[in-house]
Design a binder for these strands. Structure first.
Lengths: 350, 350
DNA sequence: CTTTAGCACTCCTTTGCCTCGAGTGCTAAA
DNA sequence: TTTAGCACTCGAGGCAAAGGAGTGCTAAAG
């Protein structure tokens, strides 16, 4: 059953007022906010309907109304004005983005920090590979008779390297052969398969080759495993403590724990969805039942995408957060589209 | 003026009781805890003295006593029993340490997490170079006509690498020459000096060499700068919320902010000091005035040292935390002493 | 000189009670 | 369908009383 226009308008007023003031909204205020066209008594009738329909809630009998999750959902879907951000805000975001960003990990972490400060709520940030990661290329560089550097390039052109120490000496002459072996047999496959192939080679190779080979493969497995498990960065966690709904320590505690110790449980976004808003109980995670999350994705290129989420009370300013977050995500996509690793120095992100 | 033995004993009882129960300690309890040898009235006289001397405080007239920072200090310096940790605890710590640890950054972060769970308080962890970091060696690996991989090894045998894209094509033949140039002129120096030398070469080199060279140097500068700024990892921040002294949101907020957003301000340790305890106002940092920090260092080798700190209320269990933390730090030092990058698989850490 | 029993006193905490006010829901009339 | 009117509900805040833990002081005992 579709709500009447007036009911929707009332719901909108209630929601926006409650978002702004964090206090239950009474009929008198609503009547006034709607221009005094109808009396507060009329509003009360409408409020009773809206409450019965589940869009509003009453903290107690003699209090005003606050939106229920269902009410917020309707607000977000239909009532909220998808306001574009102001020029000034855009300017701020651009300025922040033009600050130097270095490695990918670093950028992802920094993006989270920026969003947190832009949105005024805690934020989290992940870079996720769209598929599984494999090694595309190996290089081995001689260091001394027992050490060499392994350089591993994975899908997405990310390069990792480490100094490895072999118990058995490795001559610089052997390294190219080893690298060949690695490049011909150990590219494009997963970590387990690597282990199996390595086992298969154990009998065919002498220890003086097998030892450094297994070191390199152990390292490579570690690299692809650690890039498979997406590191989640969180920032601005303490901002929730400023929200009146989290003055209650136990609630704040749960959320803080999620945002610091159990970051992996933060909601992710279906692929191909640019942005999603999860309101209160729509969240699967227990700790988020009294909170809302706005999460957006951006393209990093190289088959990777980034995810940025904002966590706040259900009474979050959805319109503002959604506008800023989506602008930010779009800016990031543009930035990565232009050049792979470095931010543009010019001013023409728009 | 040196305290009498009995006064010290009383201070010890008060401190330990307060640490355990988080409630002011009364004269009756103390008399009982001391075996009933003296009456509570006698204790009251002693308490009045200790209060006047500044070792104890009274939240209000009719409450028991709690230790002042000065009292804690005396307790930590003289009264606390430096108990060795139990075999079971040692076992737990060893078990945790034998879990797989991968890269250095990762290890440092993990160490912080372990300590937090061992101590039951938030913890932080840093790896600090003892001097400034410089590049020791460069390698350049061809990828395609406009891209190559730069591999940079710094003091401490840490290896970093990244794919670089040059606007101007670079032929694979040019790379060894470039690498030579880098290795002969751009090792062992700081980032600013690199910049200057690069400027000096600008006129002597053609653009087809200068372009990739400057890319590599920009990257190298970034590497040494980012290893100079020590990344601080924090874990278990939410544990402070369980402490009764931080039920007050505003205090908790300050500390949380320090432990999440301003981690760089956490106290560090003078070189050559194995462990330090900072009690309440002994902390320079405002946010730590009502908290205490126990911080210990360990040797990573390669001219690096690690730092691990535990943050808790002034009413922290100093004896337990200090014992566990120092055992942990010593274990780490031993672990790194044995082999540079990987934890021992054997069981003979002891 | 030190220790101790006794006791008045202080001050926090809890509890109950009261009032106040915001806001509702219902009724009856417009 | 809207509105004025009104009784009613319920939380917030203030206040006083009761309860209790613990002190500080005094005077006597060791």
């Amino acid at each position: 059953m579709e709500l009447t226009g007036r009911k929707k308008q009332i719901l909108k007023v209630v929601t926006e007022r409650y978002i702004a003031a964090a206090e239950p909204v009474g009929s008198k205020f609503i009547a006034q906010a709607m221009g005094g066209a109808v009396s507060s008594a009329t509003i009360r009738n409408e409020l009773a309907d809206l409450t019965e329909l589940g869009y509003l809630e009453q903290p107690h009998t003699s209090a005003g109304r606050i939106p229920s999750p269902k009410g917020y959902r309707l607000y977000v879907n239909e009532l909220m004005e998808r306001k574009a951000i102001s020029d000034q805000e855009a300017e701020e975001i651009n300025a922040a983005l033009h600050g130097k960003m270095k490695e990918l990990d670093n950028m992802v972490a920094q993006a989270g920090q920026m969003v947190s400060s832009i949105a005024g709520y805690p934020a989290y940030s992940v870079a996720a590979g769209k598929g599984s990661v494999t090694v595309r290329r190996y290089d081995l560089l001689p260091v001394d008779e027992s050490s060499f550097i392994a350089v591993v390039m994975t899908d997405g052109s990310r390069v990792k390297s480490q100094l490895l120490h072999s118990q058995i000496p490795v001559t610089p002459e052997e390294l190219p052969a080893l690298a060949n072996l690695l490049n011909s047999h150990f590219t494009g496959i997963g970590a387990e398969e690597m282990g199996q192939k390595l086992m298969g080679l154990a009998s065919q190779l002498g220890a003086e080759l097998f030892m450094p080979l297994s070191l390199a493969i152990e390292y490579a497995s570690g690299v692809i495993e650690s890039s498979a498990q997406n590191h989640v960065y969180a920032a601005g966690q303490t901002r929730i403590l400023a929200q009146p709904e989290f003055q209650d320590l136990s609630k704040a505690n749960e959320l803080m724990a999620l945002l610091t110790d159990r970051k992996d449980n933060l909601p992710v976004l279906d692929e191909n969805t640019p942005m999603q808003i999860l309101i209160g109980p729509e969240n699967v995670n227990e700790a988020l039942r009294d909170a809302s999350v706005v999460v957006a994705s951006y393209d990093i290129g190289d088959n990777m995408r980034g995810l940025i989420g904002v966590v706040g009370p259900t009474r979050m300013d959805y319109a503002a957060v959604a506008a800023r977050l989506s602008y930010f995500a779009e800016s990031l996509t543009k930035m990565f589209g232009k050049n792979h690793q470095l931010p543009p120095k010019e001013d023409d992100i728009s």
